[in-house]
């Protein structure tokens, strides 16, 4: 029997070099959700191309400031989560908790503006595909902002309960990565609602 030892067989190096499986999982999730978002955006652009007029006659565009504020707040919340992750890594467990609280507030604010946008839309979704697209994009973004806000809240609770700390904070890292997609949905909603050239 051969006893030649493979170069690749060992040893386990000093510590884990590759990303934890949970991080692989969340990146895969983002690939999937990103594809879905891309599908939605392409569908929206396809429908936009099929129109003679945009927005169609009699449809006023929704308020720009609300969308812009929601966008700013979502980016802010994402940035705060990343900041919390960095602080946590650097050992500032309490400070990370505070930053997370800020992120939660920003996310809630973003959600509030998106919902306000939906509630105060000047037309109903069944009137024209223009309105349908507005509702589905803003609604889609609001759904993911809500989910991400829930994730921040859960991490915050875990932080307060002392379940995550400098040594073990996979949940926080996962939340931070997930915010990439959340911001992308808000950006997509903003672009589809406000940035498509009128014709």
């Amino acid at each position: 029997m051969s006893t030649r030892i493979s170069r690749t067989a060992f040893p386990v190096r000093g510590g884990p070099q590759g990303a934890p499986i949970g991080v692989w999982g969340i990146w895969m999730t983002i690939v999937v959700l990103g594809t879905a978002l891309a599908g939605l955006v392409v569908s929206g652009v396809y429908l936009y191309w099929g129109q003679d007029e945009w927005p169609p006659a009699g449809f006023e565009a929704p308020v720009l400031t609300r969308g812009a504020l929601a966008l700013a707040l979502s980016v802010g919340a994402g940035a705060l989560v990343v900041a919390a992750l960095r602080t946590m890594r650097a050992g500032g467990e309490r400070a990370a908790g505070h930053i997370l609280l800020g992120a939660l507030l920003a996310a809630t604010g973003c959600l509030a503006f998106l919902v306000l946008d939906l509630v105060q839309a000047p037309w109903h979704w069944d009137e024209h595909v223009y309105a349908s697209l507005f509702y589905v994009f803003v609604g889609y973004a609001a759904t993911f902002v809500a989910v991400s806000a829930l994730m921040i809240a859960a991490v915050l609770v875990q932080r307060v309960a002392g379940m995550i700390d400098t040594g073990r904070h996979l949940e926080l890292k996962v939340t931070a990565i997930f915010w990439i997609h959340t911001i992308a949905t808000v950006v997509a909603a903003f672009a589809m609602v406000h940035l498509l050239p009128h014709r």
Binding site: L47, G50, P56, W125, E127, H128, V129, S132, L133
Partner: peptide, 17 residues
């Protein structure tokens, strides 16, 4: 379910989508 117009040619949508 709620009557959006994505695939409704009459409402500006497109069945080919």
């Amino acid at each position: 379910k709620i009557g959006t117009a994505f695939y409704d040619a009459a409402g500006g949508g497109d069945p080919l989508l």
